[in-house]
Write a protein that binds this DNA or RNA. Structure first.
Lengths: 184, 184
DNA sequence: CTCCTTGGTCAACGGTTGTTGACTTTCAAG
DNA sequence: CTTGAAAGTCAACAACCGTTGACCAAGGAG
């Protein structure tokens, strides 16, 4: 059953995603979101309760990690690197989550559970043990790249082409996933 | 010539560093800094003009990248990885800069110039061309690790020992710095 | 048409923030 | 001791924030 207010709800959600992604959690105001959506700030509160809840609805993240069991073992690093580059075209959710999670402990906890829940199961299908450590290492390189390219905008990282990224980051991810167990 | 107010100035600076590091730029208030330093908020304004200027004085970052010309070529990745782990004990400056730079464009620009100015000259002494790209790649892995370990606190990354980090990140940094030129 | 749920607007609240200026205290130089 | 600059206090400002409740408009059901 479609409600009459669904278009408004959607407009709020899209405006919220853009604002949270570009401004972070604290700098994003309910008033600005409402103005972008062309409605009154009170509507945002009516439909989403409060700012925190609006964020958690707007920043529901699906990494869409590819199924690595169908990929030749030697290529999984490259496939993963290419996926990282293409995953965020037209989807600002990760940027919103990253910008907000850095200063908001509750959102940081959300990121921890998202990466653990979505990366762990994929890593376990290809890795020779030390699954959590490997998933963590992949996260450091993927998030570090996302941070430097899309948020901090380090010029040499922004300048890299998809093929550059595959050739440089691919072997790194490959090693984090397939290198034989390293004892501590 | 030592001023009578130097202790107060220093107390403000230390309180500011801690607050900016743990709360980020927007959540840190002049009032909280003043309370930590045990003085009146007006003193902060008197000595540092405004919040933005106080931050730029408090978050003056020196990476202290080691001189790699004295290190055996095969070990520079490991040396760099170990340095990253030990550099931030008792110095919250990078955390402050990272937390703030993610939502504040001016501070992001500061980070860009800091990493370019301090990492570039070291990379150029060991790398076979493509210096900026290599420095950028090193930044992605180093900042990604810092982000996941100290800010987002991903459990497997927090659990890693110094030796774990050297063994996992060392080869990555080594490759980013010494791998023969990769064409685009 | 009437009624009542739903969608939407408006103005205001209490609180917090960065910042300012007037005021008082401290203290060393004359 | 006197004096005047420096150090520090206090109260308030203007702006902005999230949030609320009273109010109006629409539109389908009976």
């Amino acid at each position: 059953m479609a409600r009459r207010s669904d278009v408004t709800r959607q407009a709020i959600l899209e405006a919220a995603r853009e604002r949270f992604a570009s401004d972070g959690y604290e700098r994003t105001t309910i008033r600005a979101i409402a103005a972008d959506a062309g409605i009154d700030p009170a509507m945002v509160m009516r439909y989403y309760g409060n700012k925190e809840n609006l964020f958690s609805v707007a920043a529901d993240l699906d990494l869409r990690v590819p199924d690595l069991t169908e990929v030749p073992r030697a290529d999984i690093g490259a496939v993963l690197a290419r996926h990282v580059m293409t995953r965020w075209e037209g989807d600002e959710t990760l940027m919103a989550l990253l910008r907000a999670g850095v200063t908001n402990p509750a959102i940081a906890e959300r990121m921890r559970s998202i990466f653990a829940a979505q990366l762990g199961p994929v890593v376990v299908t290809v890795a020779p043990g030390q699954v959590e450590t490997r998933a963590g290492l992949v996260s450091t390189q993927v998030l570090g790249f996302t941070l430097c390219r899309y948020i901090l905008k380090f010029p040499p990282v922004v300048a890299m082409s998809v093929e550059d990224v595959v050739r440089w980051l691919g072997p790194t991810l490959q090693r984090y996933l397939t290198e034989p167990e390293v004892l501590a």
